[in-house]
Each structure stands twice: as structure tokens, then as C-alpha cells.
Design a protein around this nucleic acid. Structure first.
Lengths: 266, 266
DNA sequence: CGTCTCCTTGATGATTCTCAATGCGCGTGG
DNA sequence: CCACGCGCATTGAGAATCATCAAGGAGACG
């Protein structure tokens, strides 16, 4: 763990490389390009809107550290989280020409992003030298879209308990792909209000739903961490199934983790 | 109306041309290419699964006539409709290589599709001669994605009444873009069960929600047709707003309509 | 130590679901 | 032509899920 902090710069962009490499084996040039994402970083505080509204800059970025959300607020205060943006996820990777409405993206934790203009240029060049990169990014886009479809099913046809289990499994799967899990444990640096906005539930009901999952010994949750105690049961009750398998089996070696906010020990 | 039947072949692919032309002015070559979609047609009965499961053929198609849905069935019989596929909408326009899971697409009415392989080839060629076509299809893809996001907000944060109003407005907008509306009226060739699966509600509650909209004189519904009596009020109560405007204002000239199934007069 | 945010709990009510039954229109076969 | 079945819309009653309101507690932080 000690040396992780020393090599933090490498580790951060390594997240993006892991994700893409798990989707399509990257060649050396592609790996180098992806790792260079960390060269030009941007830091954001927690709770900051980094895209949408007035800020028109749609520079492509990759999240290297921290959590963010794409959300849609309603006029009367209701808020729906469309999807979570985790380390390795892209923002505006496909260009936003003309009058395309920009998504409203807000950080949930302090966040670091890498500049993905070089990556976008490589993808748009159509150069066959970037074949592996193109394939990986195409698959990454599939994953993003499939997650949207999962979100629709979750909100439309699952009960509160099922929704929660389903979302936790999705987050686990996505974090596992970028090496941010420890066994069945992962950092969940979000409040119950955020979970409520993602799942279309009230805060109170999220609280009670989590209690039920803990009471049934399906998960354990404390200090901003979750552990999935019975993955199979969780998958069963939530009709969850993996979108795309890893190329080389589950990633287990851990990287640095998003540690925020400070949470009391239950 | 009489001459519409005579020119039905033209009228059908005209739907696709209208949609794309409303998104980006098509040049003559692009128009011709889009209109040629009607040259090779495929007919499907109502209630037929035309993609997903065993049928692996992912030939790109454009719906020329009829309604279909992209749905996700759960093991216990629950079913969530991801999105409606209306005339002018594309199926599998972006290729499905490798292990990408195919969407499960089922017709709701007798449906006619046109072969879009030539269209796909033109898009993938990257030839700048197809610039207007590429732009229009890109915008069409935005619309599709934006509709998914709208569906998420609908299911996550809107009440039953709001969901119904919101969906009717979306359908109106999409049908209007392809010229399949008559003033504020349009054909709604689907059962209340389909509406329920799209809105994440029970059939019974869909029925009562529609009754309330009718009682409040917001809509009129009979014989498979809807009329939106107060569009502004509907937009207000459902937080609806148009995704992308038409280039040349609302399309009013009508084309042929999907007329199915036979419905009793209230 | 006071305040703030977040989690937790109880009580109550609204929304929505489920179950069950009825009716209506339409096609089908006698 | 009519009886029947079938799919779909409708209605009522009761129950489950989930939301809302209100209050309290437990850290974190200045």
C-alpha cells in the first residue's frame, strides 16, 4: 500500500488502461496513449457541476479518481440520477457538435479527470493503427448503453429491494473491472440521498431497504464501504446478470481507492 | 387519401426521409439513398420477435410502417419496454460485432421494414460525399439516446399521471417528425398492457390514469387514436420538453398511418 | 460545545398493486 | 344467424409498497 501512494500518478491512469484492456487487449501504443491521460489532469471539489448549464466546455475527459453522476433535476426539486460515472468512465468522448444538449454532470466526491483529447483524436482518425483502442472504446460504449438499459429495467420493473441489490451488483462489477475492489468489498462514497435519486426512491425507504439487506446478511455496510456477502443470492433476487465478461477473468489486484467522505464507523 | 394507397411504396420510405431531413437537410443523393430503403422490404406479423434470442441476423433495418418495441422480459413474467420503435426508427444501424448482446425487439402491429445495409455502408464509408446523411443519422442517434434518458426520468421520478402525459407527448413529437400526426391526433395502436410495460405500471393503474386524463379533458382517446387536447397543460404537468426542434417547424402534412388493431368505438 | 450533515426511527397517508369480476366487441364455428 | 370464446377495457375492494412528516442521534468540524 505504501508504494501505491508514491506511484499515484501512474495508478490513476492505470485505471483507464485496465478498463479498456479488459474489453479488448490493447497493444503497446494504445496502452501508452491511454496512460498518457494522466499527464494533463483536472481536479474538482465534491458537489461541483463539471458539465451542463452555462459551462459549455465539452472537452473530453476520463475520470481517473472519484465519483460523479449524470443527473436530471426537475423544477420542483425532484432529481433523477441517470448514471454513475466511476474511475475509467468517459465524459463527452464522442463530440458534441451543434445543438446537442449537454448532460448535467456533477461530482459526488473530489474528482480528478484526465484530458482525453488525444484519445478522441485517435478514435476519430479512423487510422487502423488504433484498431485495438477503437475496439476497446466501442465496447466501453456498449457497456455504457447497456447500463442505461439496466437502469430502465431497475426503475420500471424492480422493487426497492431488487433495485438496491441490482445497483450494488452493477457498481461492484464496474469497479471490479478497473481494479477498485477488495474481494467482495468496495468503497461506496455516496450518501443515501444519492442512492435514492439513482433508484427513484425516497431517502427513508433507501435507509430501510439497506437495513433489510443487512438484516438478511446479504451485504455489510459501514464507514463508506460495502461488502457483498452473498453475490449469488443478490443476483438471484435482483435478476442481475453481467453485461460483458472480463477477458481474463475477474480483476482482483487492487489499486488505490476513492476514500471520501470521512465516515463514522457505523 | 385515395392516391395515398397508390403511392404507398413511396410514402413508406418517405417517412424515413422526412425524419432525417428534419434533422439535417439532405442533399439529393442522400434523399435518393434513403428513399431506396423501400426497395427491399420485410414484412412481419404483429407480436413477432424480429431480433434477439436465437435469431442472430442483425441486418440493419428501418421501420417503414408499424410499431415495435425494444423490451426486456424478466424471468417471473414482468416485462419492461425500453423504448418504442416507430416508423423511421432504425434497428441495428450501428453494427453488432463480437459478443454484443442483441436487443430483443418485438412487433406490436404488422410491420414493414426496409433494408438499411446500403445506408450503413454509406455511414461507415466515412466518405464526405455523405456528409448530410452522416449528420442526420448522428442527430437521429442523439434523439434515440435522449429518449432513453427521458425514459429513465419518467420511470424514476414521475408519478403515474405525469408518466403517461410525458410518454404521450414523446410519441406525439416523434410521430409528428415523420408526418404521422393529424393536428393533435395520432394513431396509438397499442393495448393498455403495452403502456403499462412501458411506464412501469400495472394495467389497472394505466386504465385509471388514462381515465383521469380524459376526465380532465387533457386527452381524448378512442378507437386506437389519441388526441392531445391541451398540449401545454400536458407539458406542464409532466415536465416535458422537446429534445430537438424541427428544422422547418412542425410537420403537418399527413402521410399514411398505421391502422391496427381494429378497435371498437369506445 | 454548537452546528451541520447524515443516518435512523416511528407514525401516518398516498400511491400503486393485486385479485376478482363484469362487459363489450369481434371472430369463429356450429 | 347465433352461441361461444377470446382479448381487451373497465370497475370495485382490499392490501402492499412506498412517500411524507417529524423527531432524535451520532459523528465531524470549527
Amino acid at each position: 500500500m505504501a508504494n501505491v501512494r508514491n506511484r499515484e500518478i501512474d495508478v490513476s491512469s492505470e485505471v483507464a488502461r485496465r478498463k479498456l484492456d479488459s474489453l479488448a487487449k490493447l497493444d503497446a501504443a494504445a496502452s501508452a496513449l491511454v496512460l498518457s491521460l494522466g499527464d494533463q489532469r483536472q481536479k474538482y471539489d465534491a458537489g461541483v457541476q463539471i458539465l451542463g448549464d452555462r459551462s459549455s466546455s465539452c472537452r473530453p475527459q476520463i475520470i481517473l479518481q472519484g465519483w460523479a453522476v449524470h443527473a436530471r433535476p426537475l423544477a420542483d426539486g425532484r432529481n433523477q440520477i441517470i448514471r454513475f460515472l466511476l474511475p475509467g468512465d468517459a465524459i463527452c468522448l464522442d463530440g458534441a457538435e451543434d445543438g446537442r444538449p449537454l448532460p448535467s454532470i456533477t461530482t459526488l466526491t473530489p474528482t480528478i479527470t484526465g484530458d482525453a483529447r488525444a484519445l478522441r483524436a485517435a478514435l476519430e482518425s479512423g487510422d487502423s493503427a488504433h484498431a485495438s483502442l477503437t475496439a476497446a472504446c466501442a465496447r466501453s460504449a456498449w457497456l455504457d448503453e447497456a447500463a442505461l438499459l439496466d437502469q430502465i429495467v431497475r426503475l420500471g420493473r424492480l422493487t426497492a429491494l431488487e433495485r438496491m441489490a441490482h445497483l450494488l451488483l452493477e457498481l461492484y462489477s464496474r469497479l471490479n473491472r478497473v481494479g477498485l475492489t477488495h474481494g467482495r468489498r468496495f468503497s461506496l462514497p455516496i450518501t443515501q440521498e444519492v442512492l435514492a435519486d439513482a433508484l427513484g426512491l425516497s431517502i427513508v425507504h433507501v435507509n430501510r431497504t439497506l437495513q433489510q439487506l443487512r438484516r438478511d446478511r446479504l451485504i455489510e455496510m459501514r464507514a463508506g464501504y460495502v461488502e457483498l456477502l452473498q453475490v449469488d443470492t443478490l443476483k438471484l433476487i435482483s435478476s442481475y446478470h453481467e453485461i460483458l465478461p472480463h477477458q481474463d477473468g475477474p480483476v482482483e489486484q487492487q489499486l488505490g481507492e476513492t476514500r471520501w467522505p470521512p465516515r463514522r464507523a457505523s
